[in-house]
Design a binder for these strands. Structure first.
Lengths: 232, 232
DNA sequence: TATCTTATTGTATATTTTACAAAAAGTATA
DNA sequence: TATACTTTTTGTAAAATATACAATAAGATA
């Protein structure tokens, strides 16, 4: 059966996937929005999403949507909630599964394409209004992200390859909307398998901080060999 | 549009919902299985599930499936992962959303019906093989359940209305497959809003334990007023 | 060289967790 | 009725962890 036949009844009962792409810059967690170039909600902000093809597995669809907009491949995708309110889509019954991805903003060039006239990195604390139920979807995946930040080393997917402990601390401070003690944060971090780089921050007008990077190999080893549990 | 028309293409691209119903007895967390009375996988064990009707929201579909089998209403339903592998259903593309419910086994009478020749409470550590990808679905919702047991007071949905602290401890011991110290467990529990009943265990041939029940009203009040966080 | 700013270390205290001993409240048995 | 037995419940000391905050270090700048 060809895709064409399927598309004929997509808006009577169909399945889509929406992807919240999170990034971190200026001490804030951002989400990537597109200005929709087609109806419904043309001209309004939304997160990228698309119908799932009839023979396509969900993770495949998620990375397709991610790479169409960002050209990124090999990014881990996390499944979020599924939204199925019969009225969530004005043109018919569309159940949608939320995914989210964590990217380094500097690594990518999100460009307007046929789906989007414009793209925008919006700080999570300053979201504009969004098309469909996308506000709810973004908030829900953000809650998932915040939860996972506590017991999986995924903050390193948001931070630059080489980061300072203060940058890491500020990420958690933004996510949980709290202030933390530098000295104590630093002590807690000691238990995480980080590589202390022989390199320092540059172009700052004060004492430069040490740069670290996450030791993913050592992390995997620790998990396997001694049941290591990342915990913040 | 009538349901009939929809059903015509259910097996080309459709959406279902499967529900893992968990209960607790004999110190073990059990899941309710049905022996399927129709193809595919007729005669095999599975969890209850059904297609989602075209105008039906997901939580509604979930409680429909739950109440058809158990006659229970007013049970909180938790959404789990969504499974969309194109080959998961032998008769076509069926994406399914997992839900799980927590029930008190004594409160219900699960009966065989048109969908099921037989029902079975299977301990989570001793699952038989299951139809479709239901093993994966059950394990996934069980992982969700274990996670939620840590920071939401849902163990009380599994325990009897009146329970001893040892029964509660044994539930956690089964869930996390660990042994805990009675004295220390008891101390931790002190911070939870429990009602200490003026009642004791009966028909035991040793010192009877005190019975407690969860103070749901006080819990809600604490959450609102002082940001109380349940934590195990 | 002195000053400014932020990074980094150190230390003492408070809080929480853990291990384990002791006491209490029942039943069963002689 | 006394004694043993089993499980509940309380207590206490040590260990580990978290918190508050002072002190020092390493750069840039003037």
């Amino acid at each position: 059966m060809s895709y064409k036949i399927k598309f004929d009844h997509f808006f009577s009962y169909s399945f889509s996937l929406d992807c919240a792409i999170f990034g971190y810059k200026d001490g804030k967690i951002h989400v990537l929005l597109i200005k929709r170039a087609m109806e419904p909600y043309s001209g309004e902000w939304a997160i990228p999403g698309n119908l799932v093809y009839p023979d396509e597995d969900l993770p495949i669809a998620a990375s397709r949507i991610l790479s169409e907009l960002t050209k990124l491949t090999d990014v881990e995708l996390h499944q979020g909630q599924t939204f199925g309110n019969p009225n969530r889509h004005p043109q018919g019954r569309v159940i949608t599964c939320a995914y989210f991805a964590l990217v380094r903003i500097d690594d990518l060039v999100a460009e307007a394409d046929s789906w989007a006239e414009e793209v925008l990195w919006a700080p999570m604390h300053e979201l504009p209004s969004l098309a469909f139920d996308h506000k709810e979807i973004v908030e829900s995946t953000y809650a998932d992200l915040r939860r996972k930040l506590q017991y999986e080393p995924i903050c390193f997917d948001l931070l630059p390859e080489k980061f300072t402990l203060n940058e890491m601390q500020q990420l958690y401070e933004y996510a949980y909307n709290v202030e933390m003690d530098k000295a104590n944060f630093r002590k807690k971090i000691k238990s995480i398998p980080l590589i202390h780089l022989e390199e320092k921050q540059k172009n700052v007008k004060h004492r430069p901080a040490n740069l670290f990077s996450f030791d993913a190999d050592r992390y995997k080893q620790l998990v396997e060999e001694e049941n290591y549990l990342f915990r913040m």
